[in-house]
Amino acid sequence: MEGVGWIAAIIIGGFAGWLAGKLMEARYGILLNIVLGIVGSVIATAILAQFHIEVAGGRLGYFVTGFLGACLLIFVARLVRR
């Protein structure tokens, strides 16, 4: 995640996690939304790297990968809970 500072990562990750929670109809708090967005971004970036897909850098790329990764994490969490 080059080019995105810690504060920007928290803000963008929180927004990506919040948006993923709204889309997936998950009811999590703001802290978990931030964690979902940041961790989701790391996971989505790693998965995309395995397929040799590079996401554009900067805030928009971080937001997109955070959103996709957070949706993936919510989906997997629902599978595990059932």
Rank of each mutant, 00 (worst) to 15 (best):
V76F: 13
G40R: 00
L19Y: 08
N33T: 05
H52T: 13
M1G: 13
V80G: 07
G58M: 02
A20Q: 04
V64D: 05
K22M: 08
L32I: 14
L73D: 06
E25I: 05
N33P: 02
M24G: 01
V64R: 02
V35I: 14
Y62N: 10
S41M: 14
G5P: 01
W18T: 10
G69W: 00
G21N: 14
A56M: 09
T65Y: 03
R81C: 07
I53C: 06
L68M: 12
G21K: 03
V39T: 09
G58P: 00
E54W: 03
I74E: 09
M1S: 10
Y28V: 13
I11D: 02
R59W: 14
G13C: 02
R59T: 13
L60S: 05
G40L: 01
A9V: 05
G37E: 09
Y28H: 13
G3I: 06
R81Y: 12
A8C: 00
A9I: 07
L31W: 12
V39L: 15
T65R: 10
A46N: 13
F63D: 03
L36S: 02
A26G: 00
G21I: 07
F51Y: 12
M1R: 12
I10P: 00
L31V: 15
I7Y: 09
G17K: 05
A56S: 09
V76I: 15
A49R: 15
E2L: 10
T65M: 06
G13Y: 00
V35H: 01
E2A: 12
G3M: 04
C71I: 13
I12A: 12
A77R: 10
L60Y: 11
L31D: 09
I10S: 01
A70H: 01
V55E: 09
L68G: 02
F67T: 02
C71T: 14
V76W: 14
V35F: 13
E54I: 12
R78P: 03
I74T: 05
I74D: 12
Y62K: 05
A16E: 04
L36R: 08
G66Q: 08
A77D: 03
A8G: 02
R82Y: 04
S41E: 07
I38G: 02
A44H: 05
A8D: 14
K22E: 12
W6H: 05
Q50W: 14
L60I: 15
I47Q: 11
N33G: 04
G57W: 07
I7T: 01
G57V: 04
M24W: 03
V55Q: 08
E25A: 13
